[in-house]
Design a protein around this nucleic acid. Sequence first.
DNA 1: TTTATTGCAAAACCTTTGCATGTAT
DNA 2: ATACATGCAAAGGTTTTGCAATAAA
Lengths: 143, 143
Amino acid sequence: MSKEDHLKQAGLRTTIPRLKILEIFSNTEHKHLSAEEVYRALLEEGDDIGLATVYRVLTQFETAGLLQKNMFGDNKAVFELDSGVHHDHMICTECGKVQEFHNNDIERLQIELSKNAGFQLHYHEMNLYGCCEQCGSKKSGSN
Amino acid sequence: MSKEDHLKQAGLRTTIPRLKILEIFSNTEHKHLSAEEVYRALLEEGDDIGLATVYRVLTQFETAGLLQKNMFGDNKAVFELDSGVHHDHMICTECGKVQEFHNNDIERLQIELSKNAGFQLHYHEMNLYGCCEQCGSKKSGSN
DNA sequence: TTTATTGCAAAACCTTTGCATGTAT
DNA sequence: ATACATGCAAAGGTTTTGCAATAAA
């Protein structure tokens, strides 16, 4: 589906800011971007789009299911393209890198635990914080 | 250990605000409190303690290991007494109730997955969002 | 032409900080 | 007496909102 179709389907008009923002998420090597980062990426491309618009578009995209919002404890939201496939995150506290992972056994246990607690599970977030492979080897190398 | 001893051990002087805040966490039925909620609880008891002090004390207590800080996606931190025993949370998105849980199989899988990814796991947060037993039965009852 | 979208500035919200005053040791 | 804590008000960072101007349908 084209970016335009994505927007139409979400009931959103095709506008420059929306197309550009969608493009940024499609092209960036960092899949997880904060509003500020999206804003700066737009500026770097010479696009004159207000920060308020970025926030509005990100929220609309999240509502439309185009983006997924995550809080990684740094008090600011980061967004990523919503692939439709659920996954969780490993966040490197040294370099900020985010890796995705998925594990069926954990998911199954979460459902089971919820059921046992009389809890209707709608969704979850699981964030593992630590040191990624690159940062880990850097540190042990320098010791 | 007495509350005073807790403070002394943390290198913190024994002051009214600190004792009162510790007391609130010990006595409340809601274990998970935001700064604002602590502040209001103090006001209700007639204690005239500034919000800035509440924030400072909460941060100091967290650093000292007396309190544990959690972000439940609502963009504001909630604190609970740090029992020293790790647990995760189920959060009711209807009434806000927070239940704690712990599962060794999940913890083990998290460690295993991290190892396989070359990731040095330091800590994690796992939050299950949904509908607690009470709210769930209320809803099905009214349909 | 009608309705949605944008930009800007202002405000909202949670949290932190500077500084003078007050308090524990 | 000294070093630490507090209160207040101001400022910080992220996010939202009011409103007039603009652009998509």
